[in-house]
Structures are given as structure tokens and as C-alpha cells.
Amino acid sequence: MEIFFFLLFAIVALACALNVVLQKHPISSALSLVGVMVSLAVLYLMLGAEFIAMAQVVVYAGAVMVLFIFVIMLLNAGAETRKGGSITAQVLGIPALLAFFAALVFLITTYYPGLSPVKFGDFTGGGAREIGMKLFSSYLLPFEVTSVLILIAIVGAIVLARKELD
């Protein structure tokens, strides 16, 4: 049962990810990205990370991508025309990708030989309580630094937006 759902959502995630690149219209690409994020959320859920799964949907699919789509609609961006692309990319693209994946698999299996495949249902520390404890004890500094980073981004956005007025 788990392997069936894993395959289903893994395939959906990959198909949507391909669709992001292949679609000509920005709205179609953005919605495919939503599909990727929701499928990833389901995979998180199956791995036992309920809180991360829901946060993934709330933050990425629900807020970030809505803003993306909002901006695309507001700019009324039309379908893009497909340029030829470079010959090098066309010829070497797929072989280079395969080589890269092969190298990645080789490196991982060489340097971490003890790794075993993930089993669904093994992990139970994915609730809100556990993540909250970790966030405010072991990872307090990265957490606070990230919030300062976001604050800087907000201030920067306001400064940039105010410049237009005068």
C-alpha cells in the first residue's frame, strides 16, 4: 500500500516538475509547481513528518505560489515563445544529466556505504511539539538568524517600494 502511494506521488511530483519547464505559459508552470509542492507534502506525510507536510502546503502551495500567481495575473504575462536554445545544450544536455546522476549515486554509495533505504512509518518525531522543542533548543541560533534575514528582506522591499513615490 505504502509503495503504491509512494510511486503515485513520486510520479506526480516528477511529471509536474517536468511540466514546470515544458509549459509555455507562466500560469501553467506556476500551477505545476503547486502540484510538485503538494506531492512532496504527501511524501513528507508518509514519512511521518506531519507538521512539515502541512507547513509545506500552507507556506509554499498556499502563500508563496498564490503570490506568484497573483503577480503573473497582475502583469498579465502572456505565453512565451520558444527560442532554439544552444546546440551544446541540445546535444549534451541529457547525457550530462545522466552522468551527473551517476556520479551522485556513486559518491553517495562510496562515502556512506551503511545507508539503508527509508522505511515508511519508522519515524515518529514529526509532530509540532517535537519540531518546536528542536527549533527552540538545538537550532535556536539558525532560527533567529533566519528571522532577522526575513526582516531584512521586508525592510528592503519597503525601501524599494517607497523609492517610486518621490
Binding site: L31, V34, M54, V57, V58, A61, G62, A63, V66, I69
Partner: peptide
């Protein structure tokens, strides 16, 4: 999560 997806 579902209510935030509803806007689509």
C-alpha cells in the same frame, strides 16, 4: 492548508 489552497 486546505483553506489556503481554496484561493486557487
Amino acid at each position: 492548508a486546505i483553506s489556503s489552497m481554496g484561493v486557487y
